[in-house]
């Protein structure tokens, strides 16, 4: 992820992000949830599909453009939180906050999208509250409070 167009964002890293709805289908193992980077580019397509939405973003890299693949929350979650299939459109210039892939390929999990007019849309659920760290830990272990029981620890 050392490509041009990616900038570490300390402010966004401090944002308490939590993703239980994403975790039911899979763990966050392939994404670096400790790290948040910024990608600015042009939306190639926005796939409004289950089990995850998917956005391909073209990021200019010199004369060529790299395509970044961003996994996002499902239409089921997003539609209940104000998104529609028209929220992102091909050609839109967007700045995405992303938890990058650990393997270094061009992609990650979409945290948020900042539209050209400055509107900030959260994709991942985010908890802005004092116990957010505990909530994030719960999400990382797949055991949100009040949900599935914690696995026994040795």
């Amino acid at each position: 992820m050392s490509t041009q167009g990616l900038v570490s964002l300390a402010a966004l890293a401090a944002l308490a992000a939590i993703s239980p709805p994403a975790l039911a289908h899979h763990s966050t193992a392939m994404f670096d949830f400790e790290k948040t980077v910024e990608i600015t580019g042009s939306v190639k397509d926005f796939q409004w599909t289950n089990p995850h939405s998917w956005t391909n973003v073209e990021v200019q890299s010199g004369a060529a453009a790299d395509v970044y693949g961003l996994e996002g929350m499902s239409p089921n979650y997003l539609a209940r939180n104000g998104w529609t299939k028209h929220t992102l459109n091909p050609g839109d210039k967007i700045t995405f906050a992303v938890h990058p892939l650990k393997d270094g390929r061009k992609g990650g999990f979409m945290v948020s999208a900042k539209l050209a007019d400055g509107t900030l849309l959260y994709n991942l659920p985010h908890f802005d509250r004092p116990d957010a760290a505990a909530a994030r830990e719960a999400a990382a272990t797949g055991n949100a409070p009040g949900a599935s029981p914690p696995a026994p620890r040795p």
Binding site: H25, H26, T49, N50, P51, E71, P75, N76
Partner: peptide, 15 residues
């Protein structure tokens, strides 16, 4: 106050 939505896991599973 909502309905059940469709969820076809194999529609576009990349994981």
């Amino acid at each position: 106050d909502d309905n059940i939505r469709e969820y076809i896991c194999l529609e576009n599973n990349r994981d």
